[in-house]
Design a protein around this nucleic acid. Sequence first.
DNA 1: GTGAAAGCGCTAACAC
DNA 2: GTGTTAGCGCTTTCAC
Lengths: 330, 330
Amino acid sequence: MPRSVDVARLAGVSQKTVSRVFNDEPYVSADVRRRVLDAAEQLGYRLNNAARALASGRTRSIGVIALGTALYGPASLLLGIERAARDTGYALHVVSTAEGDPAGVAGAVSSLLDQGVDGIVVSEPIDDGPVPVKVDVPVLVLGAPPAFAAPRVLTASVNAHDMARVATEHLLDLGHATVHHVAGPQRWFAAKDRLDGWRAALAARDAAEPPVFEGDWSAGSGYEAGRQLPADATAVFAANDDMAIGLIRALTEAGRKVPEDVSVVGFDDVPVAAYVTPPLTTVRQPFDSVAREGLALLVHAIEQPGQALPVTDGQQVDLIVRASTAPPPA
Amino acid sequence: MPRSVDVARLAGVSQKTVSRVFNDEPYVSADVRRRVLDAAEQLGYRLNNAARALASGRTRSIGVIALGTALYGPASLLLGIERAARDTGYALHVVSTAEGDPAGVAGAVSSLLDQGVDGIVVSEPIDDGPVPVKVDVPVLVLGAPPAFAAPRVLTASVNAHDMARVATEHLLDLGHATVHHVAGPQRWFAAKDRLDGWRAALAARDAAEPPVFEGDWSAGSGYEAGRQLPADATAVFAANDDMAIGLIRALTEAGRKVPEDVSVVGFDDVPVAAYVTPPLTTVRQPFDSVAREGLALLVHAIEQPGQALPVTDGQQVDLIVRASTAPPPA
DNA sequence: GTGAAAGCGCTAACAC
DNA sequence: GTGTTAGCGCTTTCAC
């Protein structure tokens, strides 16, 4: 592998000048810059990242702790983070944690620190208690209040609370006396937020708050919820689309028509939501913009430590009305 | 940040001995090992990866080129790769490419090489023509024949051909005269394999081969296929579950009952497959085992270059029969 | 605008 | 079993 000295020799300049060119530093004449780039091209030179990291103390990479699940939400968020990271010029290290993993987030953080990342993103965190690792880089927690003790913890989140409120209000607006809720696992902050938003919407309208069914995000748990849904229920807000689909399946089997007898709203807008029977009313999560905002914060914290963080504004809520919701039966 | 010399000083040994302990090298007495680990613990010492990489010439990391989509298949594969990489002790760098991205795979490879990975995994490749980058590390292509020119290219794949064949045979076995196919985009090797398997199954039974509808993996394209499905068709094999779901939606709207009038088989076994109406017959992809086998090959190629590669055996096919398939109408 | 020297924190090769 | 000596290929600092 060619080194920067080789390029320097061929271009007839010092090694430091090669370094200047490859780091886009000022004070290099256009002529020299050209000669260096030509020489590099000719030799097939690439900057050695390990050497650069060792000398500079920074790796220009960030680590993501993802959930080990192909669920639409977490997978979309991960992709959003990758795109956003690429745009900021940072490389991305990914580690996943399974739910209930004993090593868990602490182990994941530790392995990322071993890899020498400049910052860490915790995607879709679960409330697993405090994280007992000393972290000396900024941490961005996506979708939850600061859940662990590090010197610099940042947060960005989809406004799940408002999204859930809007979904619930949509059903109340249609004339339903109240709205039932099939919640996600309450150890997930994302699930808690949705439940809170639903609760807030009911309270604001003085609607009775029916008991909550807590699912596990799977269509199977939604199905189970559907089998247990009280006979007088006319509207349900499910905390994700998969559970909504399972719920509808159970209702269909029981001879209860959606939306004539029972209206259902989901959450996520998964790609098939428009094509299930009936097409699902749902709210779409703005994964990309959350990832982008969050990473901007993180990069800022990495590159301008100590400085105040830029403020970001919340996203608008995207309610997508399809055929699974209607006024209650007469 | 403490360095290994600091640990050495505290433990009363040489710096090299600290290195030995942290690399699990032999020839360190149990007593010395303990002292070193205690000292490291006390100082909060972590091995510096950049220095290690610079000195050893290896980063112990591999890069993945993932597709920029939250589709169930690609997302599952990515997670499988992450788990497998973790098990082998390699860190994972992820880059995604959007379909039709001009920089494309070449740009992704280049950025991973800049990051200094020891090997590269190309997940779910698309036939985008040759990749014009000089690659000097082993490359594992998951799910396709060697599509690019690098000194060491390996392949591992789900046996999509056989899986498609089994799916098609299931329908023929039920008595259908032939089976229609809603294919995936043919630039994807994965889509091509499924089409070939379907074609092979028909040929083996001397069944007529109806024209193929080429979708784009989305439920919407499956819906479109459903609208165009000939009136005499009684069985369809869709190249993924989302398209199958869209297809069923279109048939339902047209008053054609599934499975009474038309049988449908999907591909993937997405989590909601069992809960759509009707529950979908499909084949499950063994993402985890493919990722595991592939990474074993890659790590072998990294660590024992030149040696023959271990042979891996294909996976069995997992046909999951649910309610979307039945004998043809009388 | 450009260059020389020092050193980032490890591993490799070899001596003891 | 353990220690010594050289780098790995850059960035940093400072001189010109």
